[in-house]
Amino acid sequence: MLKIYNDGKRMTAAIYGDIDHHAARELRAAMDEAISRSRPELLVIDMENVGFTDSSGIGLILGRTRAVEAYGGSVLIKNARPDIAAVISVSGLSGLLVKGANSTKGVNV
């Protein structure tokens, strides 16, 4: 599931649940719709409520980053738990990760 918050030129996309191949299709469509509607200068992907990701999450982030950078915007990822950040780091996208208020919170198995 996805929740979108617009705040001026910044858009926060909060993802809920697991990101895998099954879930990515809907997330991708919902994020692309929100991006093309608001064309945010900064897209913040909030991963606080993501309990799992695999390389499908990497594809999702890469695809949205391309879409936003295509018109000069940029992307940051916040609140990724350590195990989620570890997967994202495999792709070399760790530069997008910012430490949020919840970044040291324990991980739910």
């Binding site: 990515a24 695999d54 390389s55 990497i58 594809g59 890469l62 495999v90 792709s91």
Partner: peptide, 8 residues
């Protein structure tokens, strides 16, 4: 268009 990153 399937956005597989080739990193599996």
């Amino acid at each position: 268009e399937e956005e597989r990153s080739g990193l599996g």
